[in-house]
Design a binder for these strands. Structure first.
Length: 272
DNA sequence: GTAAACCTGGCA
DNA sequence: TGCCAGGTTTAC
């Protein structure tokens, strides 16, 4: 579920609520996420104060006062919910509960268990080795970068933009949306784009990601931010999950195709 | 490259 | 009952 805008939205809602709070107790009810939670995880968090929250790609990073980092990935259905006071009964998919000294708690809930979390040692950057640039970093992610990448691959635009090694944080919703704004079809090969096409594509990615963050992410079915609110971008969707509906620009019927095992949506008139 | 794997829930 | 889902990894 959460792509970059959703994770950023979670970060922004949690930051003012958990920064400076001390972790008093950690209750891991299910260690069996995408990868098993390390046996020393609870001990490592206990007694630590949360210094700040950051995000890289689709990962939420909670920096602790001993310079270690609690890293959370949300997979398809993960949530991290802040509860002001002692939480009620608890959902059967509440896998990790972290109690703060303020009396509040953070609950990681994930029905599908594709999410993951770990405690990383100070300065351990291994998790992000090979992860591409942030799309909003125009100095590293831009038309020149995409064009250069196109010289050495035959892959489709959809495949390339979904690849976290090429650019970090994009997923199925926002790749589809960005391709619409750029006016190119998902199956087009990157190598067939001109340099100015690439400029336009990089700019479209940035525009869509910025707009999605502004609207606090997309709630197509599940997504909730750190305090249980739904996102707003789903109302602004151009093509994602809109097969059969009219294009907002030209009224042509939106088409669905499968590219790289994932559903893709585009307007046959606006995208070429 | 392509498919299958990991899991649960919702919908036709 | 079968298919689909915002993600990522691993195996042919």
């Amino acid at each position: 579920m959460p792509e970059l805008p959703e994770v950023e939205t979670i970060r922004r809602t949690l930051e003012p609520r958990v920064t400076g709070k001390r972790i008093e107790r950690v209750d891991v009810r299910c260690r069996d996420l995408r990868w098993p939670i390390d046996e020393h995880f609870e001990q490592g968090l206990m007694g630590r104060t949360i210094r700040s929250l950051a995000r890289r790609a689709k990962y939420l990073l909670l920096w602790l006062d001993d310079d270690r980092v609690w890293v959370v990935h949300f997979g398809m259905s993960g949530r991290l919910l802040f509860h002001e006071s002692e939480t009620a009964a608890g959902d059967k998919h509440d896998h990790v509960v972290v109690f703060l000294d303020s009396g509040a708690s953070l609950v990681f809930n994930d029905p599908r268990r594709f999410g993951s979390m770990s405690l990383r040692e100070p300065d351990d950057a291994s998790l992000f080795e090979g992860v591409g640039p942030e799309p909003l970093d125009a100095t590293r992610f831009n038309g020149a970068y995409l064009f250069a990448h196109g010289r050495r691959t035959k892959r489709s635009l959809k495949d390339v933009l979904m690849d976290q090694r090429v650019v970090a944080g994009l997923g199925n919703i926002y790749v589809n949306e960005a391709l619409f704004v750029a006016g190119v079809r998902p199956r087009r090969a990157l190598r067939r784009l001109t340099r100015s096409d690439c400029d336009r594509l990089a700019e479209s990615v940035r525009a869509i990601i910025s707009e999605a963050i502004e609207h606090r992410g997309s709630t197509i079915s599940d997504f909730l931010d750190g305090i249980g609110r739904r996102g707003g971008y789903q109302w602004r969707r151009r093509v994602y999950d809109r097969a059969g509906e009219p294009c907002s620009v030209c009224a042509t019927e939106i088409k669905a195709v499968v590219v790289g095992q994932r559903s893709s949506f585009y307007c046959p008139q606006c995208q070429r």
